[in-house]
Design a protein around this nucleic acid. Structure first.
Length: 591
RNA sequence: GGGAUCGUAGCUCAGCUUGGUUAGAGCGCCGCCCUGUCAAGGCGGAGGUCGCGGGUUCGAGCCCCGUCGGUCCCGCCA
């Protein structure tokens, strides 16, 4: 196929290029045919340039491009000239290319949807033809941001003295944490590799090896259900350092984030980032990754609720629970229907109901107003700073549950009142620290690690490990940006005996721990330096930088919420021969 | 594993509440006209397994059951 190679691109030409002869290659974005004159908007990833075919200038050319339609690939050679009617909407809008020659490089069928930014096409179709979806400028912009972040990441960590080391993709399946994707072994039938949920153990082993400062941009895999911000395969910036304190990790992270935001968005991010404890995050915002771009903080009204004549309040406190509350300012105008919707929302998070009060003209009404004796209603309102027109929501229950429900309602109120859209263009950065090291799993009747089993306890809390595990805190840190967990990490356990004690606490038999994590326990015996690190959710950082709330907007070939790739149709069946080779038999689907 | 919601022309949607003639609109597509548009315009035209399967009914896009798929959420995600 003959074609004339481009001498410039479709986003480049300006008035200073007038009277030069250039060749463009690109896709037909639009064709406007006036008979005597035809306009063709030619598009590539750099922009759009208007091409003019003028029958007065080139009488033969018009008929030679009769067949040209949207998304045809063309080469166009011509002379740049100033437009009679400039188009201020596009950067090349002052000029146009008067075509001398046009060649059709490739024809295109009518596309299943138009290649424009503001299309409302359903995502199913877009994902099926992802390569066409990716032609849209809006999506291409996201991948330019993504590319910038790759480059900044490598440059930043290189400057900071880090070494990028690749870790295996075929690894050992370990208990704890997310479900593994398994890969059957042909050479060792009946045995399996696992794709890494993260390179956690490898990066710790690299510290034992003396690499000192390690980083890697790495794919991770978790076989769990998807969400708008979660894909089964995703990218992390994985970081680990030896001889550091938590302070060193936080400071490094702050420098990195400030650099990324400065270079990509041009904004100055104030450092250091504010910190709050896990406990405060839950108490004040009802989440361990709160969006603190707006206030609307929760309050604990347990002291008043303890002696309430409203029995749900008093009994909750008597049973060791709390009553959290939220003053939804100026939401007193919510209808009964709207409050019912809020109640339904609360129930999704495990609430049994949603007690509420309204204050209007100094009068207090609400779902349990009649059950409050004396000045109790007034005292609750006073405690919450209620004014006329406010709606008060209450969340009785076990502390973490009550806070979580409150947090969910806080977000919902912010959405409904337009608070979220007011702050949508801004960013907030903060740390959540002092996470609980452990939590008790009712399901498994044992303690499980809240972060992961290699996280070090705070020195002050080591003595609590056996006496009061609930209150032992971890040297862990999450970076929260706009309510997203953008990064998370910890100081690790670096001695064999502490790690062994942690496994004991988690209910691992010695032999079991040896079999599952023996390589780590061994490594910790050979002079392991103290170390710690952090891992950034790369896709989430790109989402934040692009201002999108959908992780599929920043991943070139994503999966649907049911884990399918609609474009190539994976996961797919394999034939029996392939299965037999890896020592597997087809599932008997008759059962 | 559970909940909500969506699926009608190539695309976006209306029609469903209250079952009833030939399922409509805009965009796109095809043809013709047109020398300054950039959401071009004018005239004409083609295009439908109403996701799929079953049921109720004289009759189903509409009601019921199931199923497949998209999206969002709870659980899950150390």
């Amino acid at each position: 196929m003959h074609f004339e190679k481009r001498t410039t691109n479709c986003g480049h030409l300006r008035p200073s290029d007038a009277d030069t002869t250039v060749t463009l290659n690109g896709w037909v974005n639009a064709r406007r045919d006036y008979g005597g004159v035809i306009f063709i908007d030619l598009r590539d990833r750099y922009g759009v340039t208007q091409v003019v075919v003028d029958s007065a200038h080139t009488p033969e050319l018009a008929s030679s491009i009769d067949a040209v339609r949207s998304e045809y690939v063309l080469w166009v050679k011509g002379r740049v000239r100033m437009r009679e009617n400039p188009n201020p909407k596009i950067p090349t809008g002052l000029v146009e290319l008067l075509a001398d020659e046009i060649g059709i490089i490739n024809a295109a069928d009518v596309t299943p949807f138009e290649i424009v930014d503001d299309l409302g096409t359903n995502e199913e179709l877009r994902l099926t033809y992802r390569y066409l979806d990716l032609r849209r400028p809006a999506l291409q912009k996201n991948f330019l941001v993504r590319n910038k972040l790759y480059q900044i990441t490598h440059r930043f960590f290189e400057q900071e003295g880090f070494i990028e080391v690749e870790t295996p993709v075929l690894t050992k399946s370990t208990p704890e944490g997310a479900r593994d994707f398994l890969v059957p072994s042909r050479m060792n039938k009946g045995r399996f590799y696992a794709l890494p949920q993260s390179p956690q153990l490898f990066k710790q082993l690299l510290m034992v090896s003396g690499f000192d400062k390690y980083m890697q941009i790495v794919k991770c895999f978790r076989d769990e259900d998807l969400r708008a911000d979660r894909q089964p395969e995703f990218t992390q910036i994985d970081v680990e350092m030896s001889y550091v304190t938590q302070e060193d990790i936080l400071a490094l992270t702050e420098r990195f984030i400030a650099m990324a935001w400065k270079e990509i968005l041009g904004t100055d991010v104030p450092v250091p980032f504010p910190r709050m404890s896990f406990h405060d995050a839950l108490n004040r915002f009802g989440s361990d990754k709160p969006d603190i771009r707006y206030g609307l903080e929760l309050q604990n009204v347990s002291t008043l609720a303890k002696d309430s004549s409203f029995s749900i309040f008093s009994s909750t406190v008597a049973e060791g629970g709390v009553v959290m509350a939220l003053n939804a300012k100026a939401c007193g105008s919510f209808s009964r229907k709207q409050i019912d919707e809020l109640t339904e929302h609360a129930k999704k998070y495990g609430a049994k109901g949603l007690p509420w009060l309204k204050m209007a003209d100094g009068e207090i009404s609400g779902s349990f107003a009649k059950q409050l004796a004396g000045d109790e209603a007034a005292r609750l309102c006073g405690e919450l700073g209620a004014e006329n027109g406010d709606l008060l929501l209450f969340f009785p229950g076990e502390w973490e549950r009550a806070c979580t429900i409150g947090g969910a309602l806080r977000t919902e109120i912010a959405k409904r009142c337009g608070i979220l859209s007011q702050v949508s263009k801004s960013y907030s950065f903060h740390w959540v620290v002092e996470f609980p090291l452990l939590e008790y799993s009712e399901e498994e009747s044992r303690w499980i690690a809240r972060h992961h089993p290699f996280t070090a306890p705070m020195t002050d809390d080591v003595h609590l490990l056996h006496s009061d595990p609930t209150h032992a805190r971890a040297v862990a840190h999450d970076l929260v940006i706009n309510g997203y967990e953008a990064a998370g990490g910890s100081i690790r356990i670096h001695t064999n005996d502490v790690q062994q004690r942690m496994f004991d606490l988690l209910g691992f038999e010695r032999e079991d721990a040896e079999q599952k994590f023996g390589f780590l326990l061994n490594a910790l015996r050979f002079g392991a330096p103290p170390h710690g690190g952090i891992a950034f959710g790369f896709d989430r950082l790109v989402m934040l930088l692009c201002g999108t709330e959908n992780i599929r907007d920043v991943i070139a070939f994503p999966k649907t919420t049911s884990g399918l790739s609609l474009m190539d149709g994976c996961p797919s069946g394999v034939d029996e021969r392939q299965l037999a080779e890896v020592g597997m038999r087809p599932l008997d689907t008759r059962q």
